[in-house]
C-alpha cells in the first residue's frame, strides 16, 4: 500500500478525530465525543504503521500532530479546585514539614543562631549591628520604637493606610520567600545566604532596639505576626534547601529525576511558607500597629504562636484508629 492509498483509506477517521478535538477545545458538543479514546488509539496505531512503513513525512507529520493533540486533550484534567487546595493546606503541607525534620532543624538553626547572636551581642557592642542596619535602618527603627514614638504614628506617616502596609508586606516579604526558594537552585547557596542574612538582620534590629529604643514597643508590635512570619522564613529556607540538596545529593535517582522529585516537594513547602507569610502580612498590616495595651498584644501573640506550632506539629496526622 502506498502512503497515498493509506491516507485515502483512513482519512475519514483522522478528520473525525480532528473534529472531536476541535469540539473539545471550543467546548462545543459533538456526537462522537465519547469515542475520543478509541479514535486516539486508532491514530496511535496508524502513526506506528506509517512510521514503520516509512510513509511520506506529510502524513507522518499530520498523524504525529494529531496524536499529540489527542494526547493533550485526553490528559487535560480539571484541577481539584478548592477541595484540592484545602487538602494541600490541611494535610500535605504540615505533613511535608514534619517529614523533612532534618531540614526543619537545620533551617531553624540557620535562622535563629545569627538572630540570637546579634540580639544578645548588640546591646554590648552595637558596632556590627549598626553596620548591618545602615543609617537608614537605624533611623526607621528609632522612629518606630523610640521612647516617645509609637509604631502606629510612624506607620501612618510612612504608609498612610493599613492596606498599603499589608500590600507592601506581601510584595516584600512573600517576594523574599520566593527568592529564598529559587536560591536553592544555586546548589543551596542562595538559600543559605538569604536565611542567614535574614536572621542576622532581624536579630540586629532586635538588639539595636535594646540598645537605643524602647523594647516594650518593639515586642508588643512584633508579638502578633512574629510566629507565621518567622516560620515562613524558616520553611521557605527548607524549600530552597530541599531543591539544593536534590541537586547536590541525588541519592538513588539520577540528577534530573532527583531535581524533578525534589522540586515537587519544595513547591509544597514554599506554597505553605507563602501562605504563612501572607497571614503574617494581614496581622502586621491590620493589627500589629494598633495602639493597644501591650498585654493584649502579648496574649494575642502567644495564641498565634501556639496555633502555628499546633498547626505545623499536628495538622493532618492520621489517627491510628482510622
Amino acid at each position: 500500500m502506498t502512503s497515498h492509498q493509506f491516507e485515502d483509506e483512513n482519512n475519514h477517521r483522522w478528520q473525525r478525530l480532528e473534529e472531536v478535538i476541535d469540539a473539545v477545545e471550543t467546548k462545543q458538543p459533538h456526537e462522537d465525543i465519547e469515542r475520543l479514546p478509541t479514535l486516539f488509539r486508532q491514530i496511535c496505531h496508524d502513526l506506528s504503521i506509517a512510521q514503520h512503513r516509512l510513509y511520506d513525512s506529510t502524513i507522518i507529520d499530520r498523524l504525529n500532530r494529531l496524536a499529540i493533540a489527542g494526547y493533550r486533550t485526553l490528559e487535560r484534567r480539571l484541577s481539584g479546585g478548592w477541595e484540592r487546595f484545602a487538602h494541600l493546606i490541611l494535610r500535605e503541607f504540615p505533613q511535608t514539614v514534619r517529614q523533612e525534620k532534618k531540614l526543619f532543624w537545620f533551617n531553624t538553626l540557620l535562622f535563629w543562631a545569627p538572630f540570637f547572636f546579634f540580639a544578645i551581642w548588640t546591646p554590648y557592642d552595637p558596632e556590627w549591628a549598626m553596620r548591618l542596619l545602615g543609617p537608614e535602618g537605624m533611623v526607621s527603627i528609632e522612629s518606630m520604637y523610640g521612647s516617645h514614638t509609637s509604631p502606629h504614628d510612624y506607620m501612618r506617616e510612612e504608609f498612610g493606610s493599613n492596606f498599603m502596609m499589608f500590600a507592601f508586606y506581601i510584595y516584600n516579604n512573600v517576594g523574599i520567600d520566593l527568592r529564598t526558594f529559587a536560591g536553592g537552585l544555586l546548589a543551596g547557596i542562595g538559600t543559605l545566604f538569604i536565611v542567614l542574612f535574614n536572621g542576622a538582620h532581624i536579630g540586629a534590629a532586635a538588639g539595636y532596639v535594646h540598645h537605643a529604643c524602647n523594647p516594650q514597643t518593639f515586642y508588643s508590635f512584633v508579638a502578633g505576626h512574629s510566629a507565621p512570619e518567622l516560620m515562613g522564613v524558616v520553611i521557605s529556607g527548607m524549600a530552597g534547601m530541599r531543591l539544593g540538596l536534590s541537586l547536590i545529593h541525588p541519592g538513588p535517582h539520577d540528577r534530573r529525576t532527583s531535581l524533578v522529585l525534589g522540586g515537587r516537594r519544595a513547591l509544597l513547602l514554599i506554597l505553605g511558607a507563602c501562605i504563612l507569610t501572607s497571614i503574617a502580612a494581614v496581622i502586621e498590616g491590620f493589627w500589629s500597629a494598633n495602639p493597644m495595651d501591650p498585654w493584649i498584644k502579648y496574649t494575642f501573640g502567644a495564641i498565634v504562636w501556639s496555633l502555628t506550632i499546633a498547626y505545623l506539629g499536628f495538622c493532618g496526622r492520621r489517627s491510628h484508629a482510622a
Binding site: S161, M164, M165, F166, A167, I170
Partner: peptide, 8 residues
Amino acid sequence: NVWEGVLL
C-alpha cells in the same frame, strides 16, 4: 495610599 497598595 490604598491605590498605591493595589499597585504594589
